[in-house]
Simulated assay, not measured.
Amino acid sequence: MTRARPLDLTGDVRALTAALVDVESVSGDEKVLADAIEAALRPLAHLTVVRDGEAVVARTELGLAERVVVAGHIDTVPLAGNLPSRVEGDLLYGCGTTDMKSGVAVALKLAAAVPSPVRDVTYVFYDCEEVEAVRNGLGRLARTRPELLAADFAVLMEPTDGEIEGGCQGTLRAQILTRGKRAHSARSWYGVNAVHAAAPILDRLNAYQAREPVVDGLAYHEGLNAVGIAGGVAGNVIPDECVVTVNYRFAPDRSLEEAREHVSEVFGGYEVRFTDGAPGARPGLTHPVAAAFARAVGGAPRAKLGWTDVSLFAGLGVPAVNYGPGDPALAHQQGEYVSLGKIVECERRMLDWLGTA
């Protein structure tokens, strides 16, 4: 079996990031990287290490009054000719540089460099975040080993360009259906065209005014959009069904059920089928541990305009934020890169937080 080179957790965090990036770990194929991470953490006497599938959990057990989780996924989207990594000036290019192996590198450095933090820490490196939720390694831990994720606060090291992003939006997808009657297109008047009947659905979407609520001091911006449309069975048949797929990104002041009710109301009179959904998470910045983190990191927290696994922590009753060195606008791009300076800055700020009360 292929093995990765041993990871050096004592060296420069920028070099560690490059080493992580150069270990291919597309979702579902993280074993080599998980093995390397486990091998690097097990010799550290101040950590208790647990392996669960391709997830690695490392914990301090100092009996301190507070416990925090620092978590990051180790998988990437499929490669696009963007490995091995390369450096150009201050930028490190390669698949997963921003999303989110730079954040993982910072977390690994912390795990090695801070044997006596002021708060007990659980480091979680997990698999299959970039694919369907049922495969998500963090979700698996929440279902089967929830005690490993118990904490007062969590930092998910998703790319945020070095700024705190509180909470996350919820998301749901729904199919809006129209029905018609098939007929030969040469005698279309004998049928009812379901695709034509979808025009009012698009009109409602064009006229939709998205909410911009402020939740716990952070401004969110919702969105309801068509992301697909399908109809028709042949080039000479009037279609008898059309499906418009919509995606609703909603602020965390709405529950998933309230979001479904809203979409049903917007498309009143149509058949609505909900295909998937995940709740959002409130910012959670009022907790004393979160406030200490915000002071250490600095800057003005902003809302996470997207869905992340902070939602999972919220479901466990753990307030969580997103914070990492990568730029989220670059995630999943062929030319993905991360600023080396941002990695160093993120490491310094996290060290300040874990080393001060």
Rank of each mutant, 00 (worst) to 15 (best):
A45N: 11
V104A: 08
P78H: 11
V266N: 00
G72T: 11
V192C: 02
V57H: 01
Y337K: 06
I164Y: 09
A294V: 13
R14S: 14
P6H: 08
K342A: 15
G284P: 01
G298M: 04
R173A: 01
V118H: 10
D52F: 13
R254L: 15
D52Q: 12
V50W: 02
F267A: 02
G317A: 03
V21E: 07
V272P: 01
N206S: 10
Y270I: 01
G167V: 10
A45L: 11
D22N: 14
I343C: 14
V272K: 01
V321G: 01
C242S: 05
D90A: 12
A112N: 09
A34K: 06
A111E: 05
L83R: 15
L172G: 08
E265C: 00
R143T: 00
H196N: 08
R179W: 03
L305I: 14
L41A: 03
M100S: 04
G235S: 14
V244H: 05
A281G: 05
F250H: 04
G103Y: 03
G223P: 00
E265R: 04
A113L: 12
H184D: 11
L7G: 05
G96I: 06
G137L: 12
A186F: 05
L351Y: 04
V266D: 00
V237A: 06
L354C: 09
S255D: 01
G103R: 03
V297W: 11
